[in-house]
Computed example of a mutant assay.
Amino acid sequence: MVIPLHELQMYRNFDELARDVLDLAKEILPDKLIYLSSFTDSEQVILKLSNINPNIHVSEGTAIKLNRTVCNRIDFEKNQPLVFEDTSKEASLDDLRSLYEKVNINAYVGIPISLKNGERFGTLCVVHDQATHFDKKSISMLQKIAKMFSYYLTLENLAYKDSLTGLYNRQYLFNFFADFSKLGGVLFFLDLDGFKKVNDVYGHDAGDQVLKEVSARIQQFIKDQEEAFAVRLGGDEFIIIFPHMSSREEIGKRAEHLLNRLNTWKPECQLSASMGIVPYPANGNISLDTILKNADGALYNAKAAGKNNYEIF
């Protein structure tokens, strides 16, 4: 899992704290270019630079294929920095040689930044246009700075997550609409058919396991959908947001595929899902409260029609 860029944009004081991190690192290595990066599933994105260095061709907002960056070789599990004091002499960088010559990086330090749950965030990187010796004390100090930054990221991340399932929570959903509703898109509102019986017959621990499994199936379903995300609204109610408008035909296909993922269980666990679906326009004035009310009405109609079904508002 990685932190999407639209989530980072909601973090309180992220820009200010990122700048403070770079300023602290700059005190340790004042003559180097230092930057913070984050990872998506496929790219490394340069978030903030300590300064502009005309000799090194790296800029904020640059996205690099993750398999084409040396940061992807950092050992995040062991939380170990990666150091190349002279990239021109590193045989292990032969496949990246042309890239680093193009941006004029000849020395590199990559410090891993992870959340406390082990999720990779990205890196704190130091680069220079000449071969450079990096002393152990400087690297140790950079690791401490990265560790403090990871604590901040963890706290912000937890504020937007449901503690049981790991999906986003209601607060994240409302903040997203406050900042990004102008994009337009489609909201799926679903709940589980037969979930109350699971709790009544097998107990709440079994019910919690079902909710975790449903969440995992939803996450698997949306992982290849650009910028889509899922929310646990409460109980057995879930929201999925697909930013950008989809055709009615595409909405129907996605709904059917999702229902198929959620109606296959062990014989003793008779579960399915019903959904209310609401497309909302880009740059519209419709509020999230109204969208949710409309979705709830469509969900009611889907259940009334026999459950394991969907209704588009």
Rank of each mutant, 00 (worst) to 15 (best):
L5R: 08
F14Y: 15
D15I: 04
D20Q: 10
K26S: 15
P30H: 06
L36S: 04
D41G: 09
A63Q: 10
N72Y: 14
R73W: 14
E77N: 10
L82E: 07
L82C: 02
E85L: 01
K89P: 04
D94L: 07
L96W: 12
R97C: 00
E101L: 10
I105M: 05
Y108T: 03
I111R: 08
P112H: 06
G118C: 11
R120V: 14
G122S: 13
T123Y: 04
T123D: 10
C125K: 05
H133V: 15
H133D: 11
I145S: 05
K147N: 15
K147R: 12
Y152C: 11
E156V: 05
K161E: 04
D162E: 01
Y172V: 01
N175D: 12
F177N: 06
A178S: 10
D179H: 14
G184V: 03
G185E: 03
F188H: 11
V201D: 15
G207A: 08
V210G: 03
L211F: 12
R217I: 06
E227P: 00
E237A: 02
E237Y: 08
I239S: 01
P243R: 04
E249D: 14
E250D: 14
R254Q: 11
A255G: 10
N263M: 06
W265H: 11
G276E: 03
N283I: 00
N285E: 15
K293R: 13
D296H: 06
G297H: 11
Y300M: 03
K303T: 12
G306H: 01
N308F: 01
N309C: 04
